[in-house]
């Protein structure tokens, strides 16, 4: 069954536990700057927005990759294969959501891979602002709608 991260910014308090969990799982240290999820702080609007890859169908990153280093798995997750990534960064400019980022330390790009089906950010979120649920459930529609706002390029008639 397709599962996805469903983010409800209204519940986010800006505590960054998601970034901490992500960075430790992926980088072996608490290091939010290398987290695949980032919480944006709209202080003047009293809003916090966790933000990460939506594993979009278009997969701009995957299409743009010149070395086939980004692949889609059976669950629709776009994974970066570090052995194939040459660090050309074309995917970082191709992803219109800006959710593929370059990691200077490794010379590779990093993106959310849903931790292989058990996303650490969702487990760490104390307010359920980030939930990992079946895509059929309410909320995913919203996420897709949000993704489509950024839909671009080829338009099928």
């Amino acid at each position: 069954m397709q599962r996805a991260l469903v983010i409800d910014p209204g519940k986010c308090t800006g505590c960054k536990q998601c970034e901490l969990a992500c960075s430790y799982v992926k980088e072996g240290a608490f290091n939010p700057s290398k987290s695949r999820i980032r919480v944006f702080d709209f202080h003047q609007n009293a809003r916090f927005v966790p933000y990460t890859c939506t594993q979009c169908d278009e997969a701009w990153c995957q299409q743009a990759c010149p070395t086939n280093a980004i692949t889609t798995d059976a669950f629709g997750v776009k994974n970066v294969n570090d052995n194939l990534c040459v660090g050309c960064k074309v995917c970082t400019i191709a992803c219109p959501f800006g959710t593929v980022n370059y990691n200077v330390a490794t010379g590779k790009v990093i993106k959310c891979d849903l931790c292989g089906g058990d996303p650490a950010c969702a487990s760490a979120c104390p307010t359920d602002a980030i939930a990992y649920t079946d895509v059929e459930q309410a909320g995913f529609d919203k996420m897709q709608a949000w993704a489509q706002k950024t839909d671009a390029g080829a338009l099928q008639a």
Binding site: T92, I93, C95, T150
Partner: peptide
Amino acid sequence: LTENIGIMRGLIQTGL
């Protein structure tokens, strides 16, 4: 600048 840089594309392409 590398952080979230693809957003430039997103904004230009969608004309948001």
